[in-house]
Design a protein around this nucleic acid. Sequence first.
RNA 1: GCGCCCGUAGCUCAGCUGGAUAGAGCGUUGGCCUCCGAAGCCAAAGGUCAUAGGUUCGAAUCCUAUCGGGCGCGCCA
Length: 570
Amino acid sequence: MGSLNVKRLLSARIEAALKDCGVEAPALVRIASRPEYGHYQANGVMAAAKSAQAKPRQLAGQVIDRLDADDLIDAVEVAGPGFLNIRLRDQFLGDRLNLESPVIGKADRPQTVVVDYSCPNLAKEMHVGHLRSTIIGDAVARILEALGHQVIRQNHVGDWGTQFGMLLAHFGHSDADSETLSDLEAYYRTAKARFDAQPDFQAASRAMVVALQAGEAGARARWQRFIKISLDHCQTLYDRLGASLGPEDVMAESAYNDALPDVLKALGQQGLLTESDGARCVFLPEFRRKDGGITPLIAQKSDGAYLYATTDLAAIRHRAQALGADRALYFTDSRQAFHFKQVFAVARQAGFAGAALSLEHMPFGAMLGKDGKPFKTREGGVIKLTALLDEAEARAMRLVREKNPQLGAEEQAEVARAVGIGAVKYADLSKNRTSDYLFDWEQMLAFEGNTAPYLLYAYARIQSLFRRGDVDPESLGGKAQPSAAAERDLAFVLARLQEVVEQVAEDGYPHALCAYLHDLATTFTRFYEQCPILAAEGGERSNRLRFAQQTARTLRTGLGLLGIATVVRM
RNA sequence: GCGCCCGUAGCUCAGCUGGAUAGAGCGUUGGCCUCCGAAGCCAAAGGUCAUAGGUUCGAAUCCUAUCGGGCGCGCCA
């Protein structure tokens, strides 16, 4: 809503004026492409003129005549072929910067949104490849919540399937005791090696799967112990990462086991099932290929086992019917794009998801090595998430000791954590999620430039300002009113938070929020260089302190939405 | 073979879904701490937006083709 989203306010006013001119068209309000054009520009008049067969500049003039927005706009003029260039009023900008109101406004229509993210395979240890889903999904979940939506996190962990037979059969043979399994990855490797080399171990593994699926008590207990160890490992990482995921968000694959026969039955009742080579498949015409064949969704293998598509269908039905979701967002890598397209289509056909539920795959690109090839370590393995975070904190610690030796050991550790973990998360969040990205230690652990530490530094400086001036920021209250040029620039950036946050909630691209926060920190630092704060007097001093406080609140909130913690000194 | 995604500064990436003179960070070069934190600020250099056509007032963005890269295409997840 509205009142905090400046772009939307302007759009509504301009569209009303267009309507008065007899044209219904989107205003297409954008940030002005150059600062000398003003704050915003509306590009919609030209397209509107075309459809109305009017002259663009003439229509633009008429729109200005009928525009009722004196409360927002200081000046608006026609430019070029028919742009509307808009400059906001200082008064209006100042009203956005009220220290007594929340920095983020709620959505007018709260929705129930399922966010499906992280979803590691419990057979293995979490590695850097899990970072994107966990971090990006978490940021979007937090953002939706901040806008007042009801968010249901679903950590759809992989805890079922044939590989668990192998792992469970290996129980008791590991170097590490099963209860203190500290190196899941090594455990997996040795189990796999035995599986590949020893026929009797293979047989034992298969027997274990059968026993597990039959619900045999011993196998089941063993499985539960293993899952608990693996989940605890994940939780440790979530806590370190500051991901807002807990045990209550886990909705494992196995939780849908009992529903699978019924999913098949429902597909059959809808007349969607066809037997093909012994497997039970759904053939939808929209997946017809050029050669005439249709790529099927296989719901049940010829040996009777179910597949992940079946589980996903059960999950959709659960989310639509039991959870009552309006949206379900899936943060998985883009290789699964076709899978989800198929599953979503079948779910619609089968009536598992009605028109009320929007199913949205939010894919992200692959992680590549420095050579541009899919990322692997020299040994062909993956980098464990634990190792990445250890390295990040260690590097940050070295820097903190160097820059700030006077801090106590405990505070140094806290700062190193915030800086190190924040840098790793920000490096990932600040990139457009759909493109592939290069994994590079130096880049991921950089502490200068457009990085989390830069934003944290801006925040810490503001806190330092308050300490030095003996100011209680909570007591400042009131509104910040721009008058100097640097204040105007800062006011404009501060006023844009809402529209950025709403956009990310809609399209799931948190890098837009990162870009915004970097812009904010840069603009603040320029203001800080140009406008003395503590040395100013009277009303000017308190006004500038309010700008500092509003910046601090916005940075803290924005970083919080990204799951990045701030520190008061660093 | 078919399909999806991608190709923008030396490097890593933005570019608000068709708008005005394509922007950041890193790196390079030069400047700024007797002045609220130099993890900072200011400035400069750096581009045939892969290539060729097309659509229109207007294209990095949309369409077609070509080249180059990644991924996916019936019983893995």
